[in-house]
Design a protein around this nucleic acid. Structure first.
Length: 273
DNA sequence: GCCCAGGTACGTC
DNA sequence: GACGTACATGGG
C-alpha cells in the first residue's frame, strides 16, 4: 500500500500532503495524519476505535488487493505493467455527498481546477476541524451547510455551467427525490439509475460516485484517459462509443473492474511524466 | 487565439 | 436509443 500512489491516483482531491510519505486525510468530520513507513502505515494519534470505525473502511483495509492482483496476473501484458507500476493503489471509500459534488465538478474540467473549486466550497461552508503545520483542516460541508451557500459565494467558486447542476442536485438530495440512504441497499445498476436522476450526473460521473463513494468495484468509469487506454491496448477502435468501451471493460475485468480501471488510469496518467 | 479537460443536457433523427 | 452540439472556465 502506497499513500503516494493513492494520492496521485486522482480519487481524493482534498488530502493535504505534508511530504512524499505523510498526508492528512479527511472524512466527514474526522481527519487523520498518516505516514508511510516502509511497508506499513502509521496512523498518528488515531484511537483504536476510530481506526476500526472510520479509517479501515475509508482505506479499504479489509480487502485483499494482492489476491485481486493475482487474479488479473497474466490476463494481458498491459494490465500487468500497470499493476506493477501502481502496486500500492487502493480504492478509497469516501463520503458520498462529497464525491457526488466532486465528480459533478470533474466533468469536462481539469484536475487542478477541480481541487480549487472543492477547496473554495469547503472554505465557504465547511467546519474547521483543526490545524497541522500551519495548514487549516476543513471538513467538506454538510448538506445543510451546502444549501445555505449564497449566490455570491457560488459565483466565486467559478463552476461555470456546473453551478446550476450542483445546486439542483443539492435540492433533489435535500427533498429526497434522490434518497442517498436508500442508495446503499440497492444493487449497483439500480443505484446508478438513481444517481443519474441528479443534474450533472451522467454515465461516467455515476460510475465514479459508485466506485469512490460507495465502494462498488463492479463499475468501470470511462473518461478520456481510459478511452485512450482501451483504444491503444485493448483493440478498441477509435470511433467506438464510450458505452461500448465501458461494457467491454466490465466484461474483461469482471467484478473488480473498478480496481483494474484505477491501475490503468494511474499508469496512463503518470507514465511519461 | 486555439485546444483541451476524469462529460452532460438537450434537441434531432 | 444513437448522434451532434453548446456549454463556463482557465492553463498550456
Amino acid at each position: 500500500m502506497s499513500l503516494k500512489q493513492i494520492h496521485e491516483s486522482g480519487q481524493a482531491f482534498r488530502w493535504i500532503a505534508l511530504s512524499e510519505d505523510e498526508y492528512i486525510a479527511i472524512h466527514e468530520d474526522k481527519w487523520v495524519r498518516v505516514k508511510q513507513e516502509k511497508d506499513h502505515l502509521n496512523f498518528k494519534h488515531a484511537s483504536k476505535r476510530e481506526l476500526s470505525k472510520v479509517w479501515t473502511a475509508y482505506f479499504d483495509l479489509d480487502r485483499d488487493y494482492s489476491s485481486i492482483r493475482k487474479s488479473y496476473r497474466g490476463l494481458d501484458g498491459y494490465l500487468d505493467e500497470a499493476m506493477d507500476y501502481g502496486e500500492g493503489i487502493r480504492i478509497l471509500k469516501q463520503d458520498l455527498l462529497e464525491i457526488i459534488i466532486t465528480f459533478i465538478i470533474s466533468a469536462n474540467n481539469h484536475i487542478p481546477r477541480i481541487k480549487m473549486s472543492i477547496e473554495k466550497i469547503s472554505r465557504f461552508a465547511g467546519r474547521r476541524l483543526g490545524e497541522v503545520e500551519g495548514k487549516e483542516i476543513l471538513a467538506f460541508p454538510t448538506l445543510e451547510a451546502l444549501t445555505r451557500i449564497g449566490d455570491e459565494q457560488w459565483a466565486q467558486v467559478k463552476l461555470g455551467y456546473r453551478e446550476a447542476y450542483i445546486r439542483k442536485s443539492l435540492q433533489a438530495i435535500k427533498n429526497k427525490e434522490v434518497d442517498l440512504k436508500k442508495l446503499e441497499k440497492m444493487n449497483t445498476l439500480d443505484a446508478k439509475k438513481e444517481l443519474m436522476k441528479l443534474s450533472g450526473v451522467g454515465d461516467k460521473v455515476a460510475d465514479c460516485i459508485l466506485l469512490y463513494g460507495m465502494g462498488r468495484m463492479d463499475t468501470f468509469p470511462v473518461d478520456v484517459w481510459m478511452k485512450r487506454v482501451m483504444n491503444r491496448h485493448y483493440n478498441v477502435p477509435e470511433d467506438e462509443s464510450i458505452r461500448m468501451i465501458r461494457q467491454k471493460g466490465m466484461e474483461v475485468f469482471g467484478e473488480t473492474a473498478g480496481i483494474a480501471q484505477q491501475y490503468l488510469f494511474y499508469y496512463e496518467r503518470m507514465k511519461g511524466r
